[in-house]
Write a protein that binds this DNA or RNA. Structure first.
Lengths: 139, 139
DNA sequence: ATTCTTCTTGACAAACTCGATAGGAAAGGT
DNA sequence: ACCTTTCCTATCGAGTTTGTCAAGAAGAAT
């Protein structure tokens, strides 16, 4: 029903990493934060989770930063959101009000989540990164 | 992305009212709360908002309670959710991070919201109430 | 009139989200 | 060796969500 700020930031960060992949060097947090307009301290925590999930890898030190662990074509929006939203994307809460009408509603929520998942799964990070580059090109 | 407890409670309450419409009498909050497993004091606030939006009407006094203001066929799930979620169902936040890739994501979020709205608009309270009655009938 | 039921209203508390702050650890440059 | 850069971790605070609690107002039944 509602897209959290954390989720959006995570997606933007991964897209930014995909766009700078050709430079073949780690991208510092600050650079991503400034480019995408994300609070730097919050992005720190998000990238840490993405690293824990194996989506990105980090390098420490003077020329350190983050880079993608996989190719952008293999990463879907759903993969990113599954990390930050705690994997409860399509695992519905089995602890509903348990009233007689609750299962009916749950059925509708499932239907909504299914169409949501369909869109997220078919949208890869590579698609978004390319589209964004194309947009910059026009300007 | 996520369905709030308040939203689910509101839908359950309206469905419950639809099911007891033939009895032609106001249904007290307590009765709805117990039947659907909703915290009674919280349901109080939700019904107040639904009344403010003109979806239900209330009668005070000894034989008082709530009843639907319209026929269940005219009420869609979206109508109910629009009330409790503060009308920001399809009005996307124009205050995004404003980074270069943000519009691309906003486009995807819009796509998701659109398919969401499609499901919610086509699902009427009457459909859910009937389905629930049929289910009880089988048992 | 009194009492009982029910809605109405406002204040309050626990949990989560969004972000800031501060200090530490690892690695590279000099 | 030293110092800078960067990641890493923990904690704290404002705001929202999710409820709870208690006192009040309005109407029906007796």
């Amino acid at each position: 029903m509602r897209i959290s700020a954390k989720a959006e930031y995570a997606c933007l960060a991964v897209i930014a990493l995909a766009q700078r992949r050709l430079e073949n060097r780690p991208v510092p947090i600050r650079e991503i934060a400034e480019a995408q307009g994300i609070p730097e301290t919050f992005l720190t925590q998000i990238l840490l989770k993405l690293k824990g999930a194996g989506l990105v890898v980090s390098t420490r030190g003077s020329a350190g930063g983050y880079r993608l662990a996989q190719s952008p074509e293999e990463i879907s929006l759903r993969d990113v959101l599954a990390v930050v939203d705690g994997c409860d994307l399509n695992a519905r809460d089995t602890q509903g009000p348990a009233g007689p009408a609750a299962p009916l509603l749950a059925q509708v929520w499932d239907q909504i989540r299914a169409s949501e998942t369909r869109v997220l799964t078919k949208t890869s990070i590579a698609q978004l990164a390319d589209r964004s580059n194309a947009h910059d090109w026009v300007i």
